[in-house]
């Protein structure tokens, strides 16, 4: 336990640009710790998204590549097929993965690309000021659903992409975790490590969806944002292992 809290070699010693209470820093650190622990730093390649985490490569100290919005898993496919011995993962938000990139996501999973996808679900487009995301909760206000998301007004229902992916033959591991407390954070670490190991051992697609707070867009104090995940978000997006082969 003690060594978990040393600064991972794969994480640069710099301050992040994220808002107070944001989950990205926690997930970055978790990934960096796993990369260290598995001893795969030299052969890890991350594909970073468009969104708040676009400059994750300024924080991770292993090879990284940018992808156009939504195209992370297509870029990762090109990388992994050329370098099958490397560990390739994408880090994507809900808009990136479940909206603009849903075709690339489903097809990479369906081809059983040996890639791990870290899906950060905060229910909104944070970088652009907080618009409706496919994962926005019913009734949740965003700057493009100012009266709260209403499926009866043609704004759709929260999209459960991880469940959809879990139904595909190409997926060997799918789980949803949250950052709503120390226990949940440790569980997130466990599941992401499983996803990386699944990539190495099962050579198929793995995904971990992490419910992550966005206090700025949610207009909540960081502690209230955590409570919102505990009380509201998990009702729509229950945490747990969805598929494990």
């Amino acid at each position: 336990m003690g060594k978990n809290f040393l600064h991972p070699k794969s994480l640069k010693k710099v301050d992040t640009h994220y808002c107070p209470g944001c989950g990205h820093g926690i997930i970055h650190r978790i990934i960096a710790g796993i990369v260290d622990e598995l001893g795969i730093r030299e052969k890890t390649i991350a594909v970073t998204p468009v969104g708040c985490a676009v400059i994750a490569y300024d924080y991770w100290d292993f090879n990284c590549c940018e992808a156009p919005h939504g195209r992370g898993l297509a870029v990762a496919t090109g990388i992994k097929r050329c370098l099958p011995q490397n560990i390739v993962f994408t880090y994507q938000g809900d808009g990136d993965l479940a909206s603009i990139g849903i075709a690339e996501t489903i097809h990479a999973a369906n081809r059983a690309e040996a890639i791990s996808c870290i899906f950060v679900n905060n229910g909104c487009y944070g970088m652009t000021g907080g618009q409706l995301a496919p994962t926005t909760l019913i009734g949740q206000k965003t700057i493009t659903t100012p009266f709260g998301r209403d499926p009866n007004k043609g704004e759709g229902w929260p999209l459960k992409l991880t469940e959809i992916l879990a139904s595909l033959e190409g997926v060997c591991f799918a789980a949803r975790t949250s950052l709503a407390g120390p226990k949940e954070i440790l569980n997130t670490q466990t599941q992401i490590k499983k996803a990386f190991l699944a990539q190495i051992e099962k050579k198929k697609f793995s995904i971990v969806e992490v419910l992550s707070p966005c206090p700025t867009v949610w207009q909540k104090e960081p502690t209230k944002a955590i409570e919102f995940i505990q009380q509201e978000v998990i009702k729509t997006f229950p945490v747990g292992i969805i598929k494990e082969l």
């Binding site: 590549c65 297509a74 097929r81 050329c82």
Partner: peptide, 23 residues
Amino acid sequence: VFIQAESEIAAINMVLGAAVTGK
């Protein structure tokens, strides 16, 4: 490697990924 991609958009982005590896 040959891949029939799910779209032209995916194909060019796979090519981007392959180019990144130096191939």
